[in-house]
Amino acid sequence: MDLRNRSPRRRALSLAIAAATVALPGSLVTPNAAAQGAFPAKPIEVIVPWAPGGSTDLAARALAAIVNDKKLLPQPMQVVNKPGGSAIIGSGEVANGSGDGHQILYTGTEPIVIQPLVKETPYKVESFTPVLQVVQTPLAFVVNADAPWKSMQELVAYARANPKKIRIANPGPQGWSEWQLRDLVRAEKLDTPIITFEAGGPAITAQLGGHTEALAATATALAPHVRGGKFRVLASMADDRLALAPGAPTLKELGFKTREFMITQCFFVPAKTSPAVVKTLHDAIKVAMETSEFREFAQKNNARIAYLSGPDTSAALKSSVANTRDILVEMGAKVR
């Protein structure tokens, strides 16, 4: 766990080059590439529709840094955050952009799959072509280390006997964690409030302070607190166990009737983008995903590298939309 022993390999030079990349993107346009009209002719903007510093943003930055370091594309990739409106704003900007491949989207699938089902959005699922699927992060169900419940069954039994006494913190609205929690609570017929916070940080803070009794969040966000002895993992909410807590059973093993929802991050371009451009992007990012640097990044952040080609991602999205629609209908929500 002592990561400081890793010898710092970065040189001051690479920092200077990187600084120049950030400061002077225009200067890097080689006249040759621009003249030929080849792709990419200028730096590629990776729009992350979330705030900087979050798990999506960090994965995008790690990938962009590898693509740039290894010169996998003749032009640099730059991450630009366009947060706001539950990621609809940034996603919409890419969907309605020029489609020449110089502006691409990196996000979890929530704004693409869920948002168009529940509200008016400036795009539809069909507005995008997925370039590839990158990582998936499983969800975990935790309680505080000093809580009396040692297992999921104990907690559910307590919740059944004491309506409204177990409050489950949910790190963000209309995301996969909320659907899975609602799915679970409905299947078990529990009277258990789900407390939705605006983001993962506040949910973890509230749980650490004992303002809620349980929390469902990504393994990435929970890992430091589980390792630091603050949280106990009661269950993996994915179909298999977590590397973070191999002793904790999955909800399926325990016989709970709930579907698996994974936080799934993908690259997207507007649907009108030419297949050749999509292929160039796909190939470069795929190589970056396969480097040992990215594997190390994913492992440290408890994310699973889950490559899917563009067409496979497209198929997965379609079934995800169908599933989500079913759940929304079962919950009695209005579906567009």
Binding site: P224, R227, G228, N301
Partner: peptide
């Protein structure tokens, strides 16, 4: 925190 994570350190309660 994001900068530390990218630099390879994961700050936790300890």
């Amino acid at each position: 925190l994001g900068a530390l994570l990218l630099a390879g350190v994961t700050p936790g309660p300890n």
